[in-house]
Simulated assay, not measured.
Amino acid sequence: MSQFRFRSPSALPGFGIAYGFTWIWLSVIVLIPLGAVVLWAASLGPAQIYAIASRPQTFAALRLSFGLSLAAAALNAVFGLIVAWVLTRYSFPGRRLLDAAVDLPFALPTAVAGIALAAIYAPNGWVGSLVPFRIAYTPLGIFVALVFIGLPFVVRTLQPVLADVDRELEEASATLGARRATTVFRIVLPTLVPPLLTGFALAFARAVGEYGSVIFIAGNIPGVSEIAPLLIITRLEQFDYAGATAVATIMLALSFVVLLIVNLTEAWTRRRLGRG
């Protein structure tokens, strides 16, 4: 065992206590509750879990939740990068106000955000009355809500990395005659891929389990605009604990697979950049 190194040398003592406390706290808060859900679902048997998952209403809710969450996280990755770039690289009047506005989805209670979005995008709302199609009470309204709550995760993940990007590399690239687009796509953006993937994963994880800001704008029509978290709540209210547990376990498994893929891609990107 002396050949294994579990930590890097540190001037601060207490690794053993901190390491043990970390596992105890993580187990109490995360591992034990999730393990209980998985064990309860496992007692149902694979056949019953598959029967619950293959129901049209369940399949539609899972497809809607995960599909829109991935789409919202992808859109936030693009526009979150632009917002983080503007806030980090430029000075302009109102910059601090814009920077503070990014954190509004963090500060607002989810129910308040949902009511505000529903009022704005309803057919008689400020925005809903100006467009020729319906936004609120449709899957598009859910997408808007998920983009709203996920944007800060991407922006706040990218900002410190952008602030630490070595400007000398950009200056050297310009000195060698590279165009601005070449500098951005060949020098700057490759270093931002790992934090961008991290922000994408955080935005997706928040969106897939979002409830409060979605139910007010979703319409909650089974098979059309019903999200998976709402389906779980409905099952619990109907005392269908087996169905609620099965749906929760399926969501947990799918979320784990998506986040694992993102984390593996991020690790591969970091290794590739390190070799480069």
Results as ranks from 00 to 15, higher is better:
Arg179His: 08
Ile232Met: 12
Ala41Leu: 03
Pro13Gln: 10
Gly114Asp: 09
Leu169His: 15
Leu146Gln: 14
Glu168Asp: 14
Gly177Arg: 08
Thr88Lys: 04
Ala248Cys: 08
Leu236Glu: 12
Tyr211Ile: 12
Gly14Gln: 06
Thr265Trp: 08
Gln3Lys: 14
Ser91Gln: 13
Gln238Met: 11
Val165Met: 10
Ile187Met: 08
Arg156Asp: 07
Thr22Pro: 04
Gln48Ser: 11
Ala205Glu: 05
Arg180Leu: 11
Val224Cys: 04
Asn124Val: 14
Ala181Glu: 13
Ile217Gly: 01
Ala11Pro: 06
Val147His: 02
Leu176Thr: 12
Val30Ile: 12
Val165Thr: 12
Pro190Gln: 01
Leu146Asp: 02
Ile250His: 03
Ser129Val: 00
Ser69Glu: 03
Gly276Cys: 06
Ala136Cys: 02
Ala53Leu: 15
Gly45Lys: 09
Pro139Ser: 13
Asn76Val: 10
Arg63Phe: 07
Leu140Asn: 05
Phe21His: 02
Ser27Ile: 00
Ala203Trp: 01
Ser2Asn: 14
Arg96Ala: 15
Ile115Gly: 02
Ile142Arg: 01
Gly150Cys: 07
Asp99Leu: 05
Leu39Ser: 13
Pro93His: 10
Ala228Ser: 13
Thr58Ala: 07
Ala47Asn: 10
Ala172His: 05
Val257Gly: 09
Ala248Ser: 11
Ala118Gln: 09
Ala111Met: 11
Ser225Phe: 04
Ile261Gly: 06
Ala107Arg: 03
Pro132His: 13
Arg270Thr: 11
Phe148Glu: 01
Ala11Ser: 10
Val224Met: 08
Ala203Arg: 01
Ile142Gln: 01
Ser8Thr: 10
Pro190Asp: 05
Leu273Asn: 06
Arg275Asn: 14
Phe6Val: 11
Arg89Pro: 02
Ile24Ser: 00
Thr265His: 02
Ala71Trp: 08
Ile233Gly: 04
Thr249Asp: 04
Arg7Thr: 14
Ser65Phe: 09
Phe204Pro: 05
Phe92Tyr: 10
Gly223Gln: 09
Ala242Cys: 08
Leu81Asp: 00
Arg96Lys: 11
Thr265Val: 09
Thr58Trp: 03
Ile29His: 03
Glu168Ser: 12
Leu273Pro: 04
Gln57Tyr: 09
Gly125Thr: 01
Phe79Ser: 07
Val144Phe: 01
Tyr50Ile: 09
Asp166Cys: 07
Ala100Cys: 12
Gln159Cys: 10
Gly209Asp: 00
Val30Lys: 03
Ile142Ser: 03
Pro33His: 00
Val127Pro: 03
Ala207Tyr: 00
Thr245Leu: 07
Leu31Trp: 15
Thr191Ala: 15
Leu98Ser: 11
